[in-house]
Design a protein around this nucleic acid. Structure first.
Lengths: 214, 214
DNA sequence: CCCAAAATACGCGGAACTGCGTATTGAATA
DNA sequence: TATTCAATACGCAGTTCCGCGTATTTTGGG
């Protein structure tokens, strides 16, 4: 069975080098490439029958961290391998939080990259030894990350509603809990959806949770 | 230049297997072996001209965690590679804190173990893909004590479904992502509901989340 | 090789949710 | 005072979800 991958890399020279190294492994099939995160997402919209994305970190328009977040949210089954020259702690930490399954150095050779792809698709994670060491250090001394990125203009009542949603209560149950009508619950939820730019309860809870609101 | 290593492993069968696998690499020289942490420390007292220790976790008298701490305290220059079997999140975390430089699965072959030793001595860290994944999870969710209370007998596929659910994807979207029919998605979700004793997506995600499953 | 479990697939009827209107009341505030 | 906004309330049409059957194929152990 072929392995379908996508690549996001703004440097055409690096992209070509990557393609060349992967060319030795015929089971790898590059379905599409993109010059930035936005383009990658557009490509995935057309074809998300992709096993794994090789992702550069430094890209214009939308960088690798943001793109990784977006991919893992929309297509959680797709694995993301970060591929970068820089191995600074900040990026590493953010990439891990964004949901990357591995973190490779661009200097790694074709065999190592191929092995990393296989390891990742077998349900593991892959990282270059240098990265692995930094990851261990992260576990030993975690970077404390301040949150509350945005509150989306939610009111106290709406946050209260979100809290109820989080626990999986139905609209009926929430109405009963808060002593308001089913219709009012509905309206609150509509307002929440509009403010959070989502369209169902799961997405609302996830977004609120990601932003430290509930 | 030969590489001097020591081994701590209580199971003589596993120890012999390890020796056999390393025999293919003549630059590796096993200076001494021990059946537990105490014995290892005694050996090191006699001869600590050792580059690296291969350390089992489960040992009588003094286990691998305690031994790792002791070694790193007394001989900080000596690298420690943990040899672990499989499902052992608690120990993994403690071993990292104790100062281990890498984590291998006992089932890894000689080449992988040799590569791990070389990577470690080159100033990096080494870990099997399965371990790397668990380490990433540790970074994402540091030190949650009451983790994995119960797994409810969920299958890997069902956990994958839960991951998709968590992000608020509709059944239709999930079907598309996983390349299965809408009906199959429904059936998986029914099975998840039964196992988790819930009746809607939010409750399922919450329960799974509370139990460290997703 | 056989069995049990897991993964896959389909349909029906009813329940719950969602989008889009409309509307009233009270509190804050410009 | 006029206006804005939050909170409350209602209905309809359409979508999605849920519970309950049934059934076939694949897979992992014994």
């Amino acid at each position: 069975m072929p392995i379908y991958i996508a690549i996001a890399e703004d440097n055409s020279f690096a992209l070509q080098g990557l393609k060349n190294r992967l060319a030795k492994h015929p089971e790898i099939e590059i379905k599409h490439t993109a010059k930035n995160g936005k383009e990658l997402l557009k490509n995935l919209q057309k074809n998300h029958n992709i096993d794994l994305v090789l992702m550069d970190l430094q890209m214009p328009e939308m960088d690798g961290i943001a793109a990784t977040s977006a991919v893992k949210t929309k297509y959680p089954q797709i694995k993301v391998l970060i591929l970068t020259t820089f191995d600074d702690d900040e990026n590493l930490f953010n990439a891990i939080l964004a949901g990357a399954s591995g973190y490779l150095l661009k200097e790694d050779n074709g065999t190592e990259i191929f092995q990393a792809i296989m390891d990742t698709l077998s349900g593991g994670a892959a990282m270059s030894p240098v990265i692995a060491l930094k990851t261990l250090q992260l576990v030993r001394q975690p970077i404390s990350k301040e949150q509350k990125v945005e509150d989306f203009g939610l009111t106290q009542r709406e946050i209260e509603l979100l809290t109820q949603l989080k626990n999986g209560l139905t609209n009926e149950e929430i109405a009963s809990n808060l002593h308001i009508s089913y219709h009012t619950v509905r309206k609150h939820i509509e307002n929440i959806y509009r403010k959070l730019q989502v369209g169902n309860k799961l997405k609302a809870v996830k977004k609120a949770s990601d932003n430290g609101i509930v």
